[in-house]
Every structure is written in C-alpha cells, then in structure tokens.
Design a binder for these strands. Structure first.
Lengths: 315, 315
DNA sequence: TCCTGCGCTTGCAATCCTGCAAGCGCCCTT
DNA sequence: AAGGGCGCTTGCAGGATTGCAAGCGCAGGA
C-alpha cells in the first residue's frame, strides 16, 4: 500500500459516516474526497464503503479492516508528531487552542493579546467548538476546560474556581422578591430541551419548570445578550454576568453551579517551547482574574435581596 | 502529522543511508526526494538527518524516532495491503515476481508465457535482483527461491530438486582426464572473491585454488556464456548447462551442490486469485521440467569420463 | 404534489508537485 | 594536479490533483 494518506480518508469516512463529513475533517473539497475514495477503491479492487440513501457511507468488512489499521497508524503518527513537537524549541509557528465561547468572549482575548505581544512569531488559532477536541490526536494543542483532565496522558493545571449564578435585567430584577421567589415566576432563558453534559442546563432543569423557559439557545453569550435585553433570567458564569451594569444577580454564586477552570495540554507537548509559553502567560493572565472568575469582586448592591447562595444547594 | 507519506521517505532514507538510494527505492526522482525531505524538516522544525560528506545521510535522534514509527506504520500498511489483496478475486492487475537470473533465462519465460496466455489481464513484473526481496513488505508477491522459506508467515511449495555440476567447453573437456583431474588444472570461472551465501561459490572456494580462477562475475548466465567461449570450467545448474550442446559435464551432478526449488508467497496472499493462478500454472510448468532441473535427462556421453558425483562429496 | 436542501458527480481551470536538465561541488582515482 | 563520477541543488515545464461551480437526484417537509 503505497499511499498511506489515503488511509486517513478511509478513517475519516468511517468516523464521519459520510463523505462530506470526512472532507470537512480533512479540510479538503468534497469532490476531492469523492475522487480519492473512488480511486483508492479502484486500485485496491475492493469496496470499502456501501453508499446508502441519504449519503450515509457504511464501512464494509474491508473498510472496517482498513479503518482499524488507519486508526493504529493515526495513533503512531500522532505520538510521533507530539514527540517531535515536544522537542520544538522555536517560539514561532502555530498553536491551536480550544476553549468555550464565553471564556473567549470575556477573558481570553486580552490574555492572548499579551501572549502575542510577548511572542509575535506565534500564530494562535482559537477553536470554539461544541465538541470536546482530542488532545491525543492533536486536534488542539491546548484546551481550556471546566473540569480536571481524566485521561492519563493529559497534563493540566487548575487556574481557578468558576462561580455561576442567575442574572436578570434591572427591570426584571427589581421585583422586590428574593431570588428564589423571583426565579419561580420570571421568564427564563435556557438551553435546548434534554441537553446533556452541561451542568448549568441540568441545574436549570431541576429548578425551573419547562413552561417558564421562553428562549432557548446553546450559545451562552447569546443568553447573556438576551438577559440584558430583558427576555428573562439566565444562568451565567460570574465572569460573564458581573461586568454587566445592566444585569443584577438574583443570588450569590450557587455552589452547585460552580466549576473549575483548567488549562490542559498533552504530556508530550509540555516541553514544547510555544506551548510552555502559552501555559505560562495565558495561565497567569487568567489567574490574575480570579476575583472575577470566583464572583468575588462584585459589590453586594448588585444582588437583589442579598440572597445567600448556600441556601440553594441541595443534598 | 498530516502527511503520512513523508514517513515513507524518512524510512527509506534511514534504511538506504542516502537520498539517492531512498529515491530509488521509492521510485521518485532524487530532486523530488531532496525537496520533500527538506520541506518535511522545515515543517517539523527539526533535523531528521545529518548530511555527511559523500552523500551519507545519518539519522538524528528525531530521525531514528521517526523511522521507527514509520517502520511500524509500514508493517501495519503492508499487512492491510496483504489482507485486502488476499481477498482480491480479480484475475487482472499486476503481479510482482522475483527469481534468479538463471531461472528466468532458461525456464520462466515459457512458463510465464503460458500463464499470460491463460490470463491476459494480468501484468507480470519479473524482478531479478541480487537482494532477497521481502514478501512481508510486499517488495514482491511471489518468489522463486532455492531454499525452503523459514519465516513463519511465508507459504511455499517445493517444486523440484536442482542439480548442479561442473561444465566446460568440448575443447577444454576433451583432455581425456577424469573430472577431478581436469578440474585440478583447468582455468576456472568463478564469483567475486569472498562472496557469501552462494553455495556454489563456496563449493568452488573449497575445491579449486584461487590461482585457477581466471574470470570472475556474479552473473551465472554470464558464466555460462564464458564457459561456452572456452574461458574455463564453470559450476552451473544442470537446467542451465545440460541444454547446451557446446558444453560437457566434467562430473555427474554433485550432491553437495544440490539445491531445492521453492515457489513462495506470503500466507496472506495465498487466496489472491492471481497469485493462486500463478502458483498453479507456473508451478506446474516448472514441475514438468523436473527431469531437466534434476539433471536426469542428459545422455551419459555428455559427461567426460563418466565420473560419479558421489565421489566428490566430503564429510 | 411541489419545493427546498443536502449529497453526489463531473467539467474545467488553477495550483501544486514532479521529473528533467543543467550546473556546482566534492571526493577519489589516475 | 587534473579529470571523472557521484550526489546536491535549483529553474522550468508538464502533468496530476484539487477546488470551484454547476447540474442532477433523492428525500423530507410543507
């Protein structure tokens, strides 16, 4: 097999289940992917995928065999790439970082600006994606995550706790009721129905009835904008809500909603010069914002009724 | 690492120890290899090879790491290639066969002609190489070898014994002496000094003095031509010597010189349709030549003095 | 039943990669 | 010391591959 790169295509199609999905992952045109797969199947004299109606590509036995081999090759190539990158002493080149949209919106841009000022030869690509990108497969070099890394080969550093609470516009928040009372009848901004894996969305499901949620969006920045516009109350991280003079807290930060901010890379990349530089500079810049992240720098008059967060915790 | 094919280049350079050698193995232009290696090193930001005077490329630590990964990838890709090829039911496409020059010269061409007549859609590439090509790495699909395969994953079939003996031109062989007597003072045609791994060459080292060897060449067909021209006596396989009316045997076939003819493929390719077809047709064609291969179809008058081969065996 | 959106397929032009060719440098042999 | 051979390097042209664009078909929803 003289073209190992074709196996990347096979693996991408097997994973994506479609040709266009694979083309996207590989960043090639779908017509290119179409031709390369056809050419490969012709050279091998075997069908790797059944084409099903609706564009679904289903791996045949040979396709599964090829995808399995490609996955092992990918693991080998990724480890090699990390090893080599891990020894890279240059403070130039490209750095791929993944983060949440809200962190990017409020905190990362100035931090990345400082990093770029210190290292103008490094290009930062900030990927804001709903998917959790794989650091093992080098879909990103560095991730800012809201939980401790669990995979053995990832290396992370906790930067701060992240406080969350419920916000409303001054108009909606001026009801005179305490936070809990207000939340029980205000219109509420939330996530899509049945969303999983987002702690704030799950908390909301437990504490407000479905009929109160009048606006749903997966974009937390969008929820911020909607809250400011008076559409309803929203559950937001304090670093997002507190700087907004138009918003008031309905509660002090809610312990159940608290998260941790981690900055994570693959163990093999820890010694890559530009990775270390980013971890240092951006890590310190975020640590400097601890007061904001933990909800500690907002004056009490911005919380309607001064309701204590601890009363909200269950179990 | 987005270009897995570059790793083939790294592996080839590591193995060949030179850029031009690697280019040859990969069947690309040396200028292409030069540019691709340079481009890869630039993208990775690391030197994979030290360039030494005289064109030697010596792998750096990173180069060794990359070559090791590439070797594992190669093993994976080769196994995949064999698996897929092993299920190939087409009687079309390319078949790569390796054999000795003498077999090709005397026996294979008519056999391959019969094979091609039966399967005109199959292209046969016959590689005559001093190196033993790897069937595991699919440097060839089928090999004709003079010894039983020892690697576990090769599958072979013994076709015949191969008899060898010493030939001379009618003029040189008309001395009236018995074979042993004649060999002790005739000029002799041989291999390069100190050659290893060729049984006939080692036998010659034991039985004639260095000073008798007046012509040396690694090409056994060339030795045949030289013997016919009367340059000296030559050790030849009977299938090469016996059909030549210009030559006479100095001995009956010598037991020490005997070899076995095996037709070998990788176990994974046994069920490939065109491989099976080749094994069947060419295997049968060679078996049909058993009399010639074993030296059994030559009349006694073509052996000077009728000297019995067994007298020649030592130990 | 019709329309829209998504995926497939292919022609064409642009871009990129490769081979060819030539020149340079170095080393070895005469 | 000179010449030849081998490997390196690079410009240029040609071919191969890719992206763009457009058309087709199918499925799902209105």
């Amino acid at each position: 097999m003289d073209d190992w790169n074709d196996l990347r295509l096979v693996l991408a199609v097997a994973r994506a289940g479609s040709l266009t999905g694979a083309a996207e992952v590989l960043r090639v045109n779908h017509s290119t992917a179409f031709r390369r797969l056809g050419s490969l199947e012709q050279r091998l004299g075997v069908r790797l995928f059944e084409r099903l109606p609706g564009g679904t590509y289903l791996a045949t036995a040979a396709g599964e065999r090829a995808a399995a081999a490609a996955e092992r090759i990918e693991t080998e190539a990724a480890a090699l790439g990390r090893d080599i990158a891990g020894q890279d002493v240059r403070l130039t080149g490209r750095l791929r970082v993944t983060s949440s949209e809200t962190l990017a919106f409020r905190l990362l841009t100035p931090a990345i600006r400082r990093f770029r000022d210190a290292h103008p030869g490094i290009t930062v690509e900030l990927v804001i994606d709903n998917r959790v990108l794989s650091l093992s497969r080098r879909e990103a070099d560095i991730a800012l995550r809201v939980m401790r890394p669990t995979e053995g080969e990832l290396h992370g550093r906790k930067l701060a706790d992240i406080a969350w609470t419920v916000y409303a516009s001054r108009e909606l928040g001026a009801s005179g009721e305490d936070g809990l009372g207000a939340l029980s009848h205000l219109p509420v901004i939330g996530w899509e129905d049945g969303v999983r894996g987002i702690n704030a969305a799950e908390w909301l499901d437990r504490h407000v009835s479905d009929t109160q949620i009048v606006y749903r969006t997966s974009s937390v920045v969008n929820q911020l904008v909607a809250a400011k516009a008076g559409l309803g109350a929203a559950v937001l991280p304090c670093y997002l809500g507190d700087p907004e003079a138009d918003l008031v807290r309905l509660f002090d930060p809610v312990r159940e909603l608290a998260r941790e901010l981690w900055i994570v890379t693959h163990a093999d990349l820890r010694r890559t010069a530009r990775v270390r530089a980013f971890l240092d500079i951006v890590g310190e810049a975020l640590i400097a914002e601890r007061a904001l992240l933990t909800g500690m720098d907002r004056p009490a008059e911005q919380t309607t009724g001064g309701y204590k967060a601890d009363a909200m915790t269950s179990g």
